[in-house]
Each structure stands twice: as structure tokens, then as C-alpha cells.
């Protein structure tokens, strides 16, 4: 009986460790209180249009190489590059979640990657959509499963 109890406890510990229940906050961020800061000046947009290029699984030393004339324009102020490293377990959907919402990838995300639906409660996409920004998207259709109704135009591959 004791062995059975230990076995059951170890099974529970295993599933709790590798497949934890998601603790994603169920709330959206609120705008900063207008009585504290001059938010219209502090958060005034610097640019009118933004192009976000996500290149999955690309070595950063290729991008920064002097032999890459197009990407070297980044260093001339026409854009900025950011290297995002996501720890294993990692497939496309948890990578997108980590990038857009700051979620920490879990093992269960690998299973959910195949049947991912709109699950995020707050993200950069939600914030931009709620600010009446028109977002167009081209690329991996995992984005379309995560954000099925947030894009002005889109094409998934």
C-alpha cells in the first residue's frame, strides 16, 4: 500500500513538473493613469509604421556580418535587430508566445502546438489591435491560429 502511494505521488510530481497548469494572467493591461504622467508626451509614437520581421532559427552572426549589405543597414539606423533565445522545449507556437506575450515555454506547449487556438489573454498584438492599429501578416500560419481575428490582411504558409 505504501509503495502504491509513493508510486502515485511520483506520478503526480512528474505531471506537475512537466505539464504544469498554465498560469497565464487572465487580464489585459490597462493604460497608464493619466493623472500620474503626461502620457501623450511620454508615450508619443516615434514612427508611424512598424515592420516586424521574425526570422526563425537564424544565426545572429550571419545577420551582423559585413558581407550582408541589406541587414547591415540595421546598424545605420534604418531598423534594429534583437536576438531572442527561447529555451527548450521549443517549437513554433511557444516561440511566438514567448516573443509576443512573454510566456515561458512549457512541455505541454509542444502538444498544443498542433492544435493551437486563440489562448493568449494579453499580448503586443492585442494591445495594437485595441489601439486601432491595422496589422497585416505574412508567414507561418501558427500566428493565424493564435490570433484568428486580429489581422487586417494575412496570408499563412
Amino acid at each position: 500500500m505504501i509503495l502504491y502511494g509513493i508510486f502515485l505521488l511520483s506520478i503526480l510530481l512528474f505531471f506537475n513538473g512537466f505539464f504544469p497548469i498554465s498560469k497565464t494572467p487572465q487580464s489585459f493591461k490597462n493604460d497608464p493613469p493619466k493623472d500620474m504622467l503626461p502620457v501623450n508626451d511620454t508615450y508619443a509614437p516615434v514612427v508611424s509604421k512598424l515592420v516586424l520581421v521574425v526570422i526563425d532559427a537564424l544565426r545572429l552572426d550571419f545577420v551582423n556580418s559585413q558581407l550582408m549589405p541589406l541587414t547591415s543597414r540595421l546598424s545605420r539606423g534604418n531598423g534594429c535587430s534583437n536576438n531572442v533565445s527561447v529555451q527548450t522545449p521549443t517549437v513554433t507556437m511557444p516561440r511566438i508566445k514567448a516573443l509576443i506575450a512573454g510566456n515561458v515555454p512549457q512541455f505541454i506547449d509542444i502538444v498544443l502546438n498542433l492544435a493551437s487556438t486563440e489562448q493568449l489573454k494579453d499580448s503586443l498584438i492585442h494591445s495594437a489591435y485595441n489601439s486601432n492599429k491595422k496589422i497585416v501578416f505574412y508567414g507561418d500560419d501558427t500566428w493565424l491560429k493564435l490570433f484568428p481575428s486580429y489581422f487586417w490582411r494575412y496570408e499563412g504558409t
Partner: peptide, 27 residues
């Protein structure tokens, strides 16, 4: 490379009625 997607991205660059464009490529 999906040339249809590339063509549509080039169209978007000309149309400019959007505020944010997201492109996701596989390196």
C-alpha cells in the same frame, strides 16, 4: 520561398494602409 507571399508582401509595401506589418520567415 513562397513567391505568392513575396508578391503580396511587395504589394503591401506599396499600399501602406497598414500600421504594423509582421513577417515570419524560417531561417
Amino acid at each position: 520561398v513562397d513567391h505568392n507571399v513575396t508578391r503580396n508582401v511587395l504589394k503591401e509595401i506599396e499600399v501602406k494602409d497598414w500600421d504594423i506589418m509582421i513577417l515570419h520567415y524560417l531561417g
